[in-house]
Design a protein around this nucleic acid. Structure first.
Lengths: 193, 193, 193, 193
DNA sequence: CATGAATGAGGCTTCATTCAT
DNA sequence: GATGAATGAAGCCTCATTCAT
């Protein structure tokens, strides 16, 4: 229990002040213990953050998988929608984690660089693979090459919406999601509006 | 001269280690002076970084303006292309600045929060306004509402490409830019490929 | 224990070098600890000295009260004598404290200015009040106006002896005390020598 | 001109913050020059303050001599009065210098310790000698032993008034001077009031 | 005369960490 | 499990001082 609270506090502090600004004292304070107590659970600051980062990446992957499972049987456009909205929801609800993730991608501490690259690749492969399957199921008429292209296009848009979480307020973001969905609809041959 | 070098070193260090990890010692070392000398030019660490951030935002805006000026008279699709490639080029060439910018957006120090919000708004307004004008010039048949929509769609895609600078290598990025341009072409009614 | 030793060292160092010359390093050295350890007990240098000054003033008042209690029942001239000698003894035995006190009176740091004024007033009132009572008890024939005057005269003389602690050696000081007592005897109408 | 301004600024700063707190920067600032410029006039901080202290002591002695000259021919009680009031006036008008003097007496920097002791002795001898002469002239009936005693008594009282400059406000101080003069009158056999 | 630019030394303070309790 | 007490290392910053201009 305390151990998890420490982990969360570490992430919160890192999200605000990055590695060197996330002091053991502030983390302890957030948990309501003394700094010395952290060392009962973690060997040192570095190992604490390695743990925190690992948990962070794992949680993120799980969350995305859950989102996909929930809409597994719906038409592909609904799945795109669910992924877009799910991404936004998740990151709005886990602001600290998102900030840490962005920070890790931007300036990865060398200790985590490898793990991070692997995560990004895993995530990418999983998403590509899943979407390929789901497109085939919903729209068998689309050949694989086209699917691949669609997925790449979707990823630009998903990444765009992801970054705009940090730029826009809730209302503007909703509009951007609508535009994103509109684009996907157009790309999938829907000239219906 | 020394003053500018300090500014650049501050940005480089911040990009790697964020505020608390960008120590005066490391900044001085990068410049080739002693830490005490920094204080001849800047009152303290905070004011040094405030200056650095301001310069960063100003440079970024100027750069984007320059890009747009260079392609001012070309068709709108070329302009979209120039903006996408220009953005990528600029941020690849100024990795440190980009990382700092991302870090500022993600976890803005309160001293710069206001300045940052204003910059983002200024940038947004300028880009919207410029593109509106350029679309009207090149495609007078598109009404303003549609233009507005197109610009929003472009911004999602531009933001997507921007974020993917941090995710993909040069080759993958080039592909993503191609997909981005393809999307814009489709959105502008071009069924020509 | 360590906390009190720090306080004493702070006073000693302040007495020698004043605030800016009383460095945390020298204080720590005197206590036999490292500078960082001071911060476990005191938030910072300022609060350490605020504590030290408060203790100093409190101790001084207590000491004076004790002196008076010890001679409470003796004739008033003996009381004057006890106060003069007690003051000299106390300040000779607590040279550092005396120097700090003088320094505080001369150039009071603004943080302690108010506290100091209150202390001086409290001390003054207490002494005036006590002596009034004791004169009345020993010499009921002296009316209050005269008593007030006598006390003021005594205070000039006491302050003179106090300042001469810093000017004269032990032997000269003893002579000055004798003169002081002689003056008081004369002032109280004693032409007996 | 600048040299004297530096000297005065040094004394002012010393009076407020003592040696270690009187920084070259603040002294320069008070004069309206840059710290580096001070080194044109003084070899270093230590020599600047040695000069300042010497001037201080010399000025003080001169001032006291002047006071005495002005009342040279008056009766001895007027001379006591002039000395008391002159002392108070001088120190009220030269607060910084007084504070420095007190600080020097209390915690003399070793570089000036010897000079200071000599000054105090010179001052003492001069005053004793002068007063002896003046008493003899005004009251030839008082023998030298008695004069010596009177002078010692006056010195306690003068020192008392001197210290009370730092303790009391102008009005209270005037009262204390009156009491002091009253005492001297009584001591000189005056039962007239 | 004056100062812009620089720096070694040292100031205060916080950091991560240890260890006995 | 937890922490009071301690510390070496390092953080930011100011100090007195120098020197070329």
């Amino acid at each position: 229990m305390t151990k998890e609270k420490i982990l969360q506090a570490a992430i919160n502090q890192y999200s605000l002040y990055s590695y060197h600004g996330a002091t053991m004292r502030k983390i302890a304070q957030e948990v309501g213990i003394k700094p010395a107590s952290i060392y009962f659970f973690y060997k040192n600051k570095e190992s604490l953050f390695l743990d925190a980062f690992q948990k962070l990446l794992k949680d993120h992957l799980n969350q995305m998988k859950e989102i996909l499972e929930d809409v597994h049987d719906e038409p592909i456009l609904s799945i795109f929608e669910a992924l877009l909205k799910g991404t936004v929801d998740y990151h709005k609800k886990h602001e600290a984690e998102t900030n840490v993730y962005i920070s890790l991608v931007t300036s990865p501490p060398k200790e985590i660089h490898q793990t991070l690259l692997e995560h990004i690749q895993t995530f990418d492969k999983w998403m590509t693979h899943s979407l390929l399957e789901l497109i085939r199921r919903d729209k068998p008429e689309i050949d694989e090459a086209h699917s691949q292209k669609l997925i790449k296009q979707f990823s630009v848009i998903l990444d765009g919406v992801f970054w705009e979480i940090k730029l826009y307020n809730d209302q503007e973001l909703k509009q951007q999601i609508d535009e994103a969905l509109y684009i996907m609809r157009v790309l999938m041959g829907g000239n219906e509006k």
